[in-house]
Design a protein around this nucleic acid. Structure first.
Lengths: 196, 196
DNA sequence: GGCTCATATGCGTCAATGTGCATATGAGCG
DNA sequence: CGCTCATATGCACATTGACGCATATGAGCC
């Protein structure tokens, strides 16, 4: 069980509908955890069956009625129990790493393209984290416990993205230095490799 | 499809049996990717059915016969095709992060215990990566493509563990500073909190 | 003789996840 | 009128993953 607990954790902030949760998993928590709305609705049903959350139907006109879910005392207890269990360190499991392991059996050009896309991706995310950090924690300190958790969370995210971005840069440089020997590097006109 | 490709990537090094692959996934690649022998055998069957690998039975006495799997040309092509597709950036998906997000709804002491365990874990892994790096790449440079891939791989692993370990340390410090206000911090005799 | 260990392969089940599809409606665009 | 978008919920199927169990045998230990 993992997604269920992540949902419980989200609902500690405020009651939410499945739709809102799906959006949350597309932004804040979603930076760390991907879950689409189908997964979330399925999990919500299970949590409701277990009595960890309670749904309150709100009748709407023009839109389908919505179900606002609230944590029950049982849900809070379950969350605390789950949080008291030792966490299992996750594996990295990045396709990039597998490709690096078989670097001499694959084509370099697509690998470079991919690394460049990934570099951009991780830089974007890093910038995003930094933006949120500056906005929510301008002086870099947190007041309450909740804030502290989110500050640490954002810091870890920022550092992680920074690290992976740096790694992509390094890998690209190393590949350039190496591919000069065996492969022609195709760049736009006017640009040239220092080593080419 | 992911594990299958990871297996193909492993088999570019040398032909292996399922048993050897399972051991590989418990050490080198296994630092990034967890897979037990059942998963591997199942995946090997699939890959064999697809013609990506070929099994050669070696009759043994005293032990069950073994099946040494070799990459077929089709398998190599499949690997290259897979490696030419853009990679999907993985999510972090660490229980610790979810707990941080709900920090004010959980118990702090088990959280501290967990962070300490994780700190040790990531430090161990970091030391392990550094050890392998020093052994395989004493001067920090790689010769061929294959070596380059593995050097980059190990570097990323080392940095990742370092970063997470640092993060655990920071989180513990922040928690200590904070818990002095609301919770009694139980430490060994002689130690005291600056803020307590 | 029974115990576990290492070698070597595999099945079955269930939870977790990923992907596609279905339903319902008002609002805005062409 | 048909098209897509945003809101809001959900089912069905396939894959992936985690966990336990089964089989077979030589070697070493008590």
């Amino acid at each position: 069980m993992a997604l269920g607990d992540a949902i419980l954790a989200c609902l500690t902030e405020r009651p939410m509908t499945g739709y809102e949760l799906a959006k949350t998993f597309d932004s804040s928590i979603g930076f760390f955890w991907k879950a689409d709305h189908q997964q979330i609705y399925r999990e919500l049903s299970k949590l409701r069956d277990r009595g960890h959350i309670q749904g309150r139907e709100v009748v709407q006109t023009g839109k389908p009625n919505k179900l606002i879910y609230t944590l029950t005392p049982e849900g809070r207890t379950a969350l605390r129990h789950w949080a008291a269990r030792p966490s299992t360190p996750p594996s990295i499991k990045d396709d990039l790493l597998v490709r690096l392991h078989a670097l001499d059996s694959i084509d370099i050009e697509p690998m470079r393209t991919d690394l460049m896309a990934r570099l951009e991706h991780h830089r974007d995310r890093h910038a995003n984290y930094e933006r949120i950090l500056k906005k929510r924690f301008p002086d870099g300190t947190a007041e309450g416990r909740l804030d502290l958790g989110n500050l640490l969370l954002l810091r870890l995210g920022a550092r992680h993205e920074q690290m992976v971005a740096d790694f992509c840069e390094e890998a690209l440089e190393a590949l350039s230095a190496m591919s000069g020997k065996s492969t022609v590097v195709t760049l736009e006109d006017g640009k040239r490799e220092g080593k080419g």
